[in-house]
Design a protein around this nucleic acid. Structure first.
Lengths: 346, 346
DNA sequence: TTGAAAGCGCTAACAA
DNA sequence: TTGTTAGCGCTTTCAA
């Protein structure tokens, strides 16, 4: 049915390899020969079979992106960055939703190995190390996004969780508030640990001993945020401000404040990491740190593609600054960057 | 480097084809032969090369999803449905963001043809027909999602735009309001046309002649929604209610109402199509119609996969009901479905 | 239940 | 500037 290179060659009266050269634009071909080949290509509506080419050349021009779920705007923006960079360099991208389930992730990795994907960009689960190392040993470069596995020797691109939390805390301190609480996600995740650490270190620097009773750890859901904020409000007097480690927690916490009839920031100031669009409606009154999701995807993929063309440097840990936004209040209106410069920028 | 089937065969002391049968689980193989082969597979860490298999068998087990952009929660939820269904049936999915740009779309379709993708699930642009027909002619089935191209002979799965708009309008009428306005997206898009039609027909059924001055058409952005709502509010008296054809328009329209100091629904009731999470914060006071995005993706992909195993029925137009949500007001609290049943459900 | 032979559509390596 | 030969790793077809 579909025409092959051989048929094009016969039609054009040249050899197979000449057609290959014309189609791929490599090597020397006389102009009139090229024209004859192109005419045959058009006449037969020839479309190269990339699978056959891959088999011989050992290049599939294919990447894979594994992330928790595409149905969340933070991951989604990363995905867009990955796809754009891949497309720009001639790579197609397989999309894999792991749901943070190691079993699902392992199954995908297996499929990708069979497909001889050239490289993998991944937001890893806590249990990914073994499988990823296996992939690396088989010559499949891996770039981690957002979350860092300590015992994996691979490039990583992420945002500055520690610095972001520190800046949010600083901004609250700058408004004169001292009793500042914290609500964050499970500490098994590296970003959550770093955010808590950034918050505590900043308090100490300001001469405030962190009060562990004011640091609440939950599960990255609005429900959890609602509950934890409720616990903070039950204290008399309640905290003057709170740093919140992720958007879903913030959503619930803000609801708790509304239900309690408290105004933000007058009664209680809120500074939160802001990843998801759902927070937009509330954000005018918040201090927010937004991660550069698109760039995380884009730069991670760039790094991966550079590896594919031979880059052999040691793995980098590329930490990108968050974008800090302050509420439009007189006197505090210049946005800051959490870190001065991204290190090791490719 | 990576072991081949041939090497496994030598190690196990059998022929190539026997290894193939064991690996693929087809045909007859004696238990002890199978065990020897499996041992060799493990020893050599053999992973089948799917590309080679595809070349011979002409099955790539690969689909593609083309949509405007993954960075929008409606499309994203569709994508999740597509990926889940594909994964469940052993297919990997290439993700392609077209940005509704026909040129980008055409370039992707070309790549996908080269890759011998087995089928395509697409949210088409207005200019897709030619390329898609070409794909069909080359044996690549196409399923349209959400938007219908009139002159393409392909399955489509979408939600009931006409019925959704009709129900939103009915619900507003049921609250006693009569002067009901409409704000919608560009009429070049089939869904926008159908929503306007559903609104107008419902008014007529209620004995109200649609007032064209109350039907505003814009460009599916919050800015446009803000402007158009402003125009409606400039009329004295302003409308008692408005039906809004998509979420981004609604976002802007609601902002305009806030800025004008009008309460929803007391001063002006709002019924809107609700696709994106950003609207959640406002939705308690709205009547909303939410499209079954996940099912659109899932059922569309199912249809495509059924075609791949030989289904030859004429193309269907599968129209799924929207989910209607009413504000928690006494007396009006039972959700409705816009259409009784999805027709032609596979 | 197992195998031999052929070939999918293309490119690498070398030769002319 | 063009061509020949070989073979990528697997499945199809036919035979035993």
């Amino acid at each position: 049915m579909a025409a092959t290179m051989k048929e094009v060659a016969e039609q054009a009266g040249v050899s197979l390899i000449t057609v290959s050269r014309v189609v791929n634009g490599v090597g020397y071909v006389r102009a009139d020969t090229r024209a004859r080949v192109l005419a045959a290509v058009a006449a037969l509506e020839y479309i190269p079979n990339q699978g056959a080419s891959s088999l011989r050349s050992r290049q599939t021009r294919t990447l894979a992106l594994l992330l928790p779920t595409i149905a969340n705007s933070f991951w989604t923006t990363i995905a867009r960055g990955v796809e754009d960079e891949g497309e720009a360099r001639g790579y197609s991208v397989f999309l894999c939703n792991t749901d943070d389930d190691p079993v699902k992730e392992a199954r995908y990795l297996d499929v990708l190995l069979r497909r001889r994907v050239e490289g993998v960009v991944i937001v890893p689960t806590v249990a990914s190390t073994g499988q990823l190392r296996r992939a690396q040993q088989r010559g499949m470069p891996v770039v981690q996004l957002h979350r860092k596995l300590d015992d994996l020797d691979a490039d990583i691109v992420r945002s500055d969780s520690y610095g972001g939390a520190a800046t949010l805390t600083e901004q609250l301190l700058a408004t004169g508030r001292r009793r500042i609480a914290f609500i964050g996600g499970a500490l098994a995740v590296s970003t959550a640990r770093e955010r808590l650490a950034g918050y505590e270190a900043t308090l100490r620097t300001a001469g405030i001993a962190p009060d562990r009773a004011l640091a609440k750890i939950g599960s990255a859901t609005p429900e959890s945020g609602y509950t934890l904020m409720g616990e903070l409000l039950a204290r008399k007097p309640h905290p003057e401000a709170v740093v919140i480690g992720n958007s879903r927690l913030a959503l619930g916490a803000l609801r708790a404040l509304r239900d309690a009839g408290l105004a933000v920031p007058e009664d209680l100031a809120v500074a939160a990491f802001h990843d998801i669009v759902a927070l937009d409606a509330d954000s005018p009154n918040l201090i927010t740190a937004t991660q550069p999701a698109y760039d995380i995807g884009r730069l991670g993929t760039r790094r991966l593609l550079d590896r594919l063309v031979g880059l052999a440097d040691p793995p980098v840990d590329l930490i990108l600054p968050n974008h800090i936004k302050l509420p439009p209040v007189a006197g505090i209106d210049k946005p800051l960057r959490t870190t001065e410069v991204a290190r090791n920028l490719a």
